[in-house]
């Protein structure tokens, strides 16, 4: 089967609703299907990457664990919206996964250059 480059833009925080979880499920499946998947964390989705999440008490799966496993599923193109990390006072050291920090112009070009762009 042919391969397409897929950019998945995440914009929602974990746990409050299912959007982030369903987007990650989609990313893992697309990668398993041999697609060239890039993940861009924007807005509240940056909170997905925070270390030391402990969602057991709210009866949810730890989404940070899924994120830290992304490279094992051949998803190693991880991008982080620079503006968001600054606004939220989140530094690279606080994240469970290393990523490339990108600004708005770079994001616009990423959207242009991928075959398929899905934003959740």
């Amino acid at each position: 089967m042919q391969s397409k480059s897929i950019l998945l833009i995440l914009s929602h925080a974990p746990y409050g609703d299912t959007r982030a979880k369903e987007a990650l499920d989609l990313a893992l499946t697309a990668a398993a299907f041999g697609q060239d998947v890039s993940l861009l964390f924007t807005q509240d989705a940056l909170y997905l990457l925070l270390k030391s999440q402990q969602p057991q008490a709210i009866e949810q799966k730890n989404l940070a664990n899924i994120c830290s496993a992304l490279p094992m599923y051949d998803i190693d193109k991880i991008y982080i919206e620079n503006n968001t990390s600054q606004t939220k006072h989140i530094t690279a050291e606080q994240l469970i996964l290393p990523g490339v920090f990108v600004n708005h112009n770079q994001i616009a070009l990423m959207i242009r250059d991928h075959d398929v762009v899905l934003r959740f």
């Binding site: 914009s11 924007t42 807005q43 708005h104 616009a108």
Partner: peptide, 11 residues
């Protein structure tokens, strides 16, 4: 927030 993200992506 949605609008600003969308507008920033326009080329």
């Amino acid at each position: 927030t949605l609008w600003q993200s969308c507008l920033a992506a326009l080329l």
